[in-house]
Design a protein around this nucleic acid. Structure first.
Lengths: 199, 199
DNA sequence: GCAGTATGTGCGTGTCACGCAAGTTGTGGG
DNA sequence: CCCACAACTTGCGTGACACGCACATACTGC
């Protein structure tokens, strides 16, 4: 990894971090008060540079969540190959999303602010592509012919999103891991349906 | 329904229709050329009025899809109560999304234009709330206690989205109804899992 | 070291979202 | 039938923003 690449990644994270922090400080209602200039200054770059990395405030604020989602596919691939699909997915997601425990304030900001809804959905949806490929590889199904991998990936992403919302609302009567397990077990089968296996 | 209410609905649809039409005419690449002024003029209202109904071009373009999604819950409720959940969901979705057959150009514009991705996801996600309530009512589960309704609703919305994408890409080797059936059957069980039923 | 390329930055421009206040069109009571 | 009230539409002004362009700067591979 180049110095250039590392610098780029660092600036991107600095901007994203600054954006999320400022958004949290001002709360969902004061989001409009967070100016691009503030984010850029807080991240130590010029407004123009901020705009080279993100094309909207929402995108910057949700960048962390998007990066997290992008890792789901890789997390599934790191599970032992002989593990059943459902257990592998559940274990991979729980490991990725509870180590470390997500920042409640950040998640609340992202998920419960109407102006961020679109970007938040994009962020969670980022998981689908890589995850679908990982599921296809694990189950031996062909993504081009069968919908199972893509549909399951979308269902997993949706389940994570619903679990996050529930975790924020319900409060502390259950760990995030337990909520995730319950949500994922509703939609991920142990093996692909016959129709997918046969082809 | 008041005259006022009807007029309001009519202008909303006029603006949404004009926005989608202009977007299709200019294609995904020329989306930036579609000015707010053009949309408003095409719909027969002032730009300021356009802005009273929608707060972004993307929102106007995706309005039709959003309205469609909002009807999924109602469509499920109109199925006979003794039908198993999976069959009821599949039948409801297929009826809603194939009568009439969706406009390929419109769906392609909404789903395959990167700048519209966030709004498109919002549009499909609109289905989740009402759909989750309908699923909860049908299965006798409690949305506050159990994640099954919300997770299944999210999975259904995701499956519809994936099916749409596949229908656009794959072309004409299968009807949209068949694709929808295949996608939905991956994620909707005939009955809720034990954990949800027991509570 | 040095040429080449990627990245940061300042400036200018066109568009947009939205608050505000006035004009216009529907609504319900006397 | 008419009038007062409310909802909707519209024009204007403002502040912010995304992005193209050109130049300065930092990094890379030879």
């Amino acid at each position: 990894m180049d110095l250039r690449e590392r610098n780029k990644q660092a600036t991107r994270e600095a901007i994203g971090h600054a954006a999320l922090r400022l958004a949290i400080e001002n709360g969902p209602h004061g989001l409009a008060l967070v100016r691009v200039h503030d984010i850029a200054t807080a991240a130590g770059v010029s407004p123009r540079t901020y705009n080279n990395y993100f094309s909207s405030r929402a995108e910057a604020i949700c960048a962390f969540q998007a990066d997290q989602s992008r890792r789901v596919g890789q997390a599934l691939r790191s599970r032992p190959a002989d593990e059943p699909l459902d257990q592998a997915v559940i274990a991979a997601v729980i490991q990725l999303y509870t180590d470390p425990e997500p920042d409640r304030a950040g998640l609340r900001m992202i998920m419960l602010t109407p102006e961020l809804e679109g970007e938040a959905l994009k962020a969670f949806t980022m998981a689908e592509g890589p995850l679908a490929e990982a599921i296809a590889a694990r189950t031996g199904t062909d993504p081009a012919r069968d919908l199972f991998p893509a549909v399951t990936a979308a269902a997993v992403a949706g389940a994570i999103r619903v679990a996050g919302r529930h975790w924020l609302e319900a409060g502390s009567d259950a760990s995030f891991a337990a909520i995730l397990r319950g949500a994922l077990s509703c939609v991920v089968p142990a093996t692909p349906p016959e129709a997918a296996r046969d082809r």
